[in-house]
Write a protein that binds this DNA or RNA. Structure first.
Lengths: 219, 219, 219, 219
DNA sequence: CATGAATGAGTTTTCATTCAT
DNA sequence: CATGAATGAAAACTCATTCAT
């Protein structure tokens, strides 16, 4: 009350604020969903008051959009690069991509965005469209590119690229979704071992697409 | 008005009421998510008053749980039956299961439950645990059972059943999630063709697990 | 707490509610202005809870509009009737109108609407326009009608009817505004005596418009 | 950056600051009303930061009071002067006053203060009282003075000065209120022509008070 | 003096829940 | 059993006010 050393109620850090708020919002949106996330809690988790949040984001929806936008852009470029310039066998390329994805996205807070978008796409068609164009479409193209490379080089069977692309992405996406839904339950059996999961996934997929000839020597 | 012999214009089995409410709730929960679904609307869609809803369900959460429980459990028995008593090759069994799932669940309103659970698992750990035990665990066991059958009968390679089980489910689950998230956007490329998707999925998976010997004759 | 004779929290009176709420809202809007009126208080004054208000009015603005609309329409018809069918001298007609207005509007809660509209016209152009058409315009027409009658019958000087109409209304409107602004201060001198005010007004106005010939005999 | 001789690009008299703030506040209070005026906007319109406002005014209410006080008092002295020292006929004096009022107040931003006070008198009894004493009372006294002058000099009829004073002010006040309420609607008929209005007002009033003898020659 | 980031009390609005009829 | 009027807790959002810089 009359303590002479009152802690300042805030410190000036305009530049850092938006990022802190976005990080807090990402966490809570992912954990609870859009509607169940109270802006009070976002602010609290960012260490500021509710009002401060409104200095940086016009309203809850804008915050949501910013969370998605902010976490979407940076990772895909790299992967596209790799696919475009890779030298080795396409099987190797696929291993590279799968592990790279896991290290850079799947095993990262970024995986939460996927969960968020799946859960809220219906409520935010506009954001969903944006996400589809910026992430899904580009990611799909990259995978398709890889599959075509494998086919063209005679390594892969001649498969329906478009469908395989979707099927191939599914196990990776599911791993992310699991982490942010049932994975949180932490019950023994429900726990997945991502490493083993990835290994099996790669093995299964390669057996699924490689020509029989290519299989025997490699394993 | 006070005619003592007024015959009711219609009669309805009292037992039917909860089902109508559950159906309405399923529709709306799936369409809008848990929080965005107003009990007013559920009641209205079921053709009853809001108060009536509370005669059958203690509160919104119980309604949600009932929706999940009611819609989810009965479908699994059938599938377990099939796996247990199937006579043909395991590849045939898999085709059977995949198409059966699509007809009975994936292509049905029930697919919305999956989306719902992924989106809300964190908010309802209790329901999530129930769902995990009653649905995911049983479904997984069934798939594992099938994989083991294939291995034991010498049809499938010797793979890590536990991981393969998860990986195998992913494309089917994703198809359901897609339907209730980005699928609703309806933009040209985003649209998936479930039939082709299923065919490719089956083909890819069988190539992934069948022994090379078993592959050549079949295609 | 455990009193066995709990008073019912509400009584069913759907039909009466809107009127009660409108009356309460009129009082408070007039007294405090639109912005300073809390819907909590409106509800409390009407003896219901805040939520109830929203059963009848979509939001604060709609409540405001309803308050204006509801209190505005009914009174003017009468006056128009009188002007149209009056038999005596126009001076008498004017006295009739002035006193009638005072009894039916000026000295009534309805006068508050005038204050309200003057204070809030800028913030609700739509309502202002409605009020202008339904009240001001009709009221003006009635006064103009009376003035023209006086001129046509040779009782009044030939004046600019349109301007005189506005000027003539001013003292009556001011009396209403005063009641709901400074009049509430209740300080000795500020208090106006409406009766004397009306008498002086009538006298002054008639001297202002009557032809000299008509003046001498009457006073 | 740390050049010790940086000359300020501009200098401004510190004393001018409050005036700019008062001017901005007057504009916005008049345009939007007390509650709807944000101090942010006042500061912005005055070209300073919000914090600066609080260097000069303790809070919003004090700013409001200052706006009223500052703009209202100085104008009355002049008018009192004129009434006290006028040489010609009282009819001439009245014309002088009416036109002077229109030029110095009615047709000025200051007219907004009147509207403001009518709208907010109830919410600020203290300001209302101040306004009543400093403005209304003095204004009334001046008008009464003029009326008495007319009566004493045998120009005016012997009327109830106190009432006539109020009635006489009404049309002028109404013209100001109109400007800031319905006048803003700008619809054809609602538009008043202040010049004609003033002429008619003067004519009507003089006919109302002048003795018949004084009337005939002048018109 | 001036700034503007931060605050938090206060208001509108929504909607799950209750309960007299 | 069924109804729907009424409730009030909860959440989004605003803005006057403060205060470290």
């Amino acid at each position: 009350m009359n303590c002479p050393f009152k802690k300042p109620r805030w410190t000036r850090r305009k530049e850092a604020r938006p990022q802190e708020l976005l990080a807090a919002a990402l966490d809570l949106f992912v954990e609870r969903g859009y509607a169940a996330t109270r802006l009070d809690d976002v602010a609290a988790q960012a260490g500021v008051s509710k009002g401060t949040l409104y200095l940086y984001f016009a309203n809850k929806e804008e915050l949501f959009k910013a969370v998605v936008r902010e976490n979407v852009v940076p990772v895909l470029g790299e992967a596209e690069e790799i696919v475009g310039s890779f030298q080795g066998s396409t099987a190797e390329l696929f291993r590279e991509i799968a592990h790279g994805w896991w290290d850079r996205i799947g095993n990262t807070k970024l995986s939460g965005i996927t969960k968020l978008m799946v859960a809220e796409a219906n409520n935010f068609p506009e954001v969903a469209r944006f996400y589809h164009e910026e992430v899904i479409h580009r990611g799909n193209a990259m995978i398709a590119h890889m599959l075509e490379r494998g086919i063209e080089r005679g390594e892969f069977r001649s498969i329906d690229v478009k469908q395989a692309m979707n099927i191939l992405c599914a196990p990776m996406i599911m791993l992310m979704l699991w982490k942010h839904s049932f994975g949180a339950l932490g019950h023994g059996e429900a726990a997945m071992s991502p490493d083993k999961y990835l290994d099996s996934f790669i093995d299964l997929f390669l057996h699924g697409v490689l020509k029989p000839a290519a299989l025997t020597p490699s394993r």
